[in-house]
Design a protein around this nucleic acid. Structure first.
Length: 422
RNA sequence: GGAGAGGUGUCAGAGUGGUCGAAUGAGACGGUCUUGAAAACCGUUAUACAGGAUUCUGUAUCGAGGGUUCGAAUCCCUCCCUCUCCGCCA
C-alpha cells in the first residue's frame, strides 16, 4: 500500500511513477486526496464533539445518580451522544473508502525503472553463450521419455492436465538441485525455514497482489489457500511485529512446492515442465531497514545469479519495465536461462524490492537505532531458485550426442556421485 | 469432534459499568550514590491520527468485529487464537 502522506506531499511524483505502469483512467489521485480531506474534516469534528461528551461524562461520574442535576445532564448527553455516533459512523465509512482506494494502487516504481510492459524490458547482462551442438538436439520431453526420468502421462492420469512426476534419476536430479540451493544459502548465512503450505486468506492478502491473485491460487476448504510461492508465507513472518533496527537485516530462505492455477496462461511452445500447476521452489527473503534495502536487492540478484552460474548454464539478467513488475514491486530483475529446444530465455528467478508496500499492509515495523519514530521495514524477495525450468535447461543443454545427459558438477555430490544419465 | 478455562502495556499480573491509557512487580533506559560494579533511591518507559507547533492539546486503541448504555477493559452477540481434559487420526 502506498503511504497517503506520500501522495499528499509529492502528488506529481507519485502520479508520474504510477503512470509508468497504469494508464490515466485506472486511478485518480484527486479522488483519493479529496476523500482524505473530507475524512480529516469529519475527524476533527468528531474529535471535538467527542471531547465535549467525555467532559460531560466525567461530570456525571461525580454526580449523585438520583439528583436533579444528573437527570438534566443525562438529557443533554443523550442528544450529544447521538450526534457523536453519527459522526463516528461517517468517519468509519470514509476511512474504509480511503483504504479501498489506496490498497488497489500498485507500488510506485523506482526512478530508474522504465515505463511500459514486457516489450520495454531491458536485458542488462548476458553470461555465457548459447550451447553449440554438432548433432540434432532433442527437447527435454523426448529425453525424459528416453531415460524414464519423468512421467507426464501418469501424472496427468492421476491429477489432470499440466501436472508432472519425476522418477528415478529425474527425481534425484530435482532433489539435488534443491539441496544445492540449500547448501549455498546456508553458506551465505541465510536461515532455513520449512513453512506451512497452506495459508489463511489474511496472510494471502498481506502478501498479495489482490484483485488478480484471487483466481491464480487454489482455494480450498476452511478459507485456506495453497501457497503459490513461499513468499506468501515469508512475508507474514513478522506481521504485526516490531523489530529493533540492530536485528536487521533478517535473511531467510524456504523450500515449498508452489501451486498455481495458471488459468489461461498456456502457450503452444510451453510443453513439458515449463509451466505447471505445481513446481518446486526455494525462495529467498529479506527484511531490511530503509537504508539496507538497495544493497539487499543487489545481494539477492547476485545470489540467484551465482546459483545459475554454478550450474554452468547460459543466462541473462532482465530488468523489468514498470508494467511487467508485480504490483508490490518497486523494481524487479529476472534471471532467465536459455532453453535450447525452443531457442528462448525463460525466467528461473525473479528478484524484487517491494520496499514498504507489503510491510504497510502487514504492519511490520522496526525501531530505529537512533530512537526515532517507528518505521516500516523493507521487504525483498527472490527465487533461489525455481527448479522445473532449470531441469529443462540442464537436460537440454547437457545432452550428448549419444542421448545421455551430463550432470553438472555441483550437483554430483548431492546425487551420490552420479555424473551422467544414460 | 466433545467439555472446560482464558486472551489486558516489553514481560508477569491486578482491574466486573464512570475518577482507567489502565494498579503493582519485573525488565530496559537516564540520574544520585560508588574508585568501578552490585545494592538502594529518584525519574522515564506504547502506538496511530488530528489540531496548535518551543515545552502542548484532543481522539482512538485492554484478541478482532458488532451491540447495549449518557458512559464499556468491565455487560451482550459473532468470530479468531491459546491452554487443559476426553475422543479420533497419525
Amino acid at each position: 500500500m502506498i503511504d497517503i502522506r506520500r501522495i499528499l506531499d509529492s502528488r506529481e511524483e507519485v502520479e508520474k511513477g504510477l503512470l509508468k505502469r497504469l494508464s490515466k483512467e485506472d486511478f485518480s489521485l484527486d479522488e483519493i486526496v479529496s476523500i482524505y480531506e473530507e475524512k480529516k474534516k469529519v475527524q476533527l469534528d468528531f474529535d471535538t464533539k467527542r471531547a465535549q461528551q467525555n467532559q460531560y461524562n466525567d461530570k456525571m461520574a461525580k454526580e449523585d445518580k438520583g439528583s436533579e442535576n444528573f437527570k438534566k445532564l443525562l438529557e443533554d448527553l443523550k442528544t450529544k451522544a447521538k450526534e457523536v455516533k453519527e459522526l463516528e459512523e461517517k468517519l468509519r465509512e470514509l476511512e474504509s473508502k480511503l483504504q479501498s482506494k489506496l490498497e488497489v494502487l500498485p507500488n510506485i516504481p523506482d526512478e530508474d525503472v522504465v515505463a511500459g510492459g514486457k516489450e520495454a524490458n531491458e536485458v542488462v547482462k548476458m553470461v555465457g553463450e548459447k550451447p553449440v551442438f554438432d548433432f540434432e538436439i532433442k527437447d527435454h520431453v523426448e529425453l525424459g521419455k528416453k531415460h524414464d526420468i519423468f512421467d507426464f502421462e501418469r501424472a496427468t492420469k492421476i491429477s489432470g492436465n499440466n501436472f508432472s512426476m519425476y522418477k528415478g534419476l529425474g527425481a534425484r536430479l530435482e532433489w539435488a538441485l534443491i539441496n544445492y540451493f540449500i547448501s549455498k544459502h546456508l553458506e551465505a548465512g541465510y536461515e532455513m525455514i520449512i513453512p506451512p503450505n497452506l495459508v489463511t486468506r489474511d496472510s494471502a492478502y498481506a502478501a498479495g497482489q489482490l484483485p488478480k491473485f484471487e483466481e491464480d491460487v487454489y482455494w480450498i476448504q476452511d478459507g485456506l489457500c495453497l501457497v503459490p510461492t513461499a513468499e506468501t508465507v515469508l512475508t507474514n513472518l513478522y506481521k504485526d511485529e516490531i523489530l529493533d533496527e540492530k536485528d536487521l537485516p533478517r535473511k531467510f530462505f524456504a523450500y515449498t512446492p508452489c501451486y498455481r492455477r495458471e488459468a489461461g496462461s498456456y502457450r503452444a511452445n510451453e510443453k513439458g515442465l515449463i509451466r505447471m500447476h505445481q513446481f518446486n521452489k526455494v525462495e529467498m527473503y529479506q527484511f531490511t531497514s530503509e537504508e539496507q534495502s538497495p544493497k539487499a536487492f543487489e545481494e539477492l540478484v547476485s545470489r540467484a545469479e551465482e546459483l545459475v552460474a554454478g550450474l554452468g548454464l547460459h543466462y541473462r539478467l532482465v530488468k523489468l519495465a514498470a508494467g511487467d513488475c508485480s504490483a508490490g514491486a518497486a523494481r524487479t530483475v529476472d534471471v532467465e536461462i536459455y532453453l535450447p529446444s525452443i531457442d528462448q530465455y525463460y525466467e528461473v528467478s525473479s528478484v524484487s524490492n517491494v520496499r514498504e508496500y507489503q510491510s504497510r499492509r502487514g504492519n511490520m515495523r522496526y525501531k530505529p537505532s537512533d530512537g526515532g519514530k517507528l518505521k516500516y521495514m523493507h521487504t525483498l524477495n527472490g527465487s533461489g531458485l525455481a527448479t522445473s525450468r532449470l531441469m529443462v535447461g540442464i537436460i537440454e543443454s547437457y545432452q550428448q550426442k549419444d542421448g545421455s545427459i551430463l550432470i553438472p558438477e555441483v550437483l554430483r555430490p548431492f546425487m551420490g556421485g552420479v555424473d551422467k544419465i544414460s
